[in-house]
Nucleic acid binder design. Sequence first.
RNA 1: GGCGGCGUAGCCAAGAGGUUAAGGCAGGGGUCUGCAAAACCCCGAUACGGCGGUUCGAAUCCGCCCGCCGCCUCCA
Length: 375
Amino acid sequence: MPPAELANKYTDQYFANMDALNVERADVYPRATEEIPKVIEIIQGLLAKGYAYESDGSVYFRVRSFPRYGKLSHRNLSEMIPKDANYEEKKEYPLDFALWKASKPGEPFWESPWGKGRPGWHIECSAMALKYLGDSIDIHGGGQDLVFPHHENEIAQSEGFTQETPFVRYWLHNGLMQLDKQKMSKSTGNLVSVKDALAHFSSDAIRLFVLGSNYRNPLTYSEQALEAGERGAERLRGALTPRANADERVALLDAGPFEQKFVEAMDDDFNTAQAIAVLFELAKEINRGAEQGANVAEAQHILLKLAGILGLTLKERAQPTPDIEAFISLLASTRDNLRQNEQWQLADRIRRELADLGVTLEDTPQGTRWKYSRR
RNA sequence: GGCGGCGUAGCCAAGAGGUUAAGGCAGGGGUCUGCAAAACCCCGAUACGGCGGUUCGAAUCCGCCCGCCGCCUCCA
């Protein structure tokens, strides 16, 4: 399979997964392979300023020329060199890293002022960030495992080229997903793919699981934790079911204080766990208010809005065809007639067998409701 | 070994010097219901990995120890 085709395949998979998780699309999705001119421009700039040097068709960044190198990851140069290391002899200094690598015969390559080659593994991020976001950006995300050397190198390349400091105002490094006490990674093969997770749990459940802890902390994937998220999602959905017959004499539920607490939590370094707690508190108030006859429609609207900020859809999970839903409603109303005639045995049988088929009936003062059971 | 981070009820997890230590899941009791389900009410850590220390006061600060995770040239 040609490289471009392979890249497209995984790009498509990525977007399918992100869409399923209700992740909004960014404005631009640049590709490293299409940004070679900017890469070359930056390398030339770094060469001109003395931050880089050419060696045998490759170009390396001279880390000792950049005094701030190591600041982000709290390292200093001398401590970073392992004793038993076997470094490329083409470098001036062991920790210098490649900006441009000469290609070996048979490898894919691009033409450059230094001959045929490919970008180093860090430069394309600087190139795309500087091109699309500007010389100084507010927030740069990434996993904790990228702090060194990747982000450290990005800073060195970008600030060296632009002479603008800082390249990034705030670094947001998220904790890594673990499975059985180990970092999930492709290289070790211990992973649960997004697709796998979505086969068993709703995107809302996955979001409640992930956002239930601080983004900086690692989190461990477990069926139990995801199941808890699913149940929580159902609880929030339940609070959104339409309520009728509001009592005019009961004050309508004011969700304002909840909205304010939610915003405060999010303003506090994205305290999503706290924000979710507010969602559950509001859901409880809605349920309680509705029970007492308060008009909760506006509060429900706010609950849905706040949940939406966290990317929660609060939509029912399964989407069977509408035809089936009509049959279910028919069965439910027939059962209601049986209940009116106190035909409990038959009524219970319908409820039980529907339950076996994945449909739950709920008898309420407003009539019988039904919904799809969770798996 | 170095650097960074984490260890809070059965499980997940917020809180970062001083109200009763959020919230969810699971569990127990109750209300409602023909019975259920859902919802609502009540209950659950004298306790925050361990040991010292600072302080009038610590889960929150300091030190040491234990356990776990990430990174420490050539995957980004």
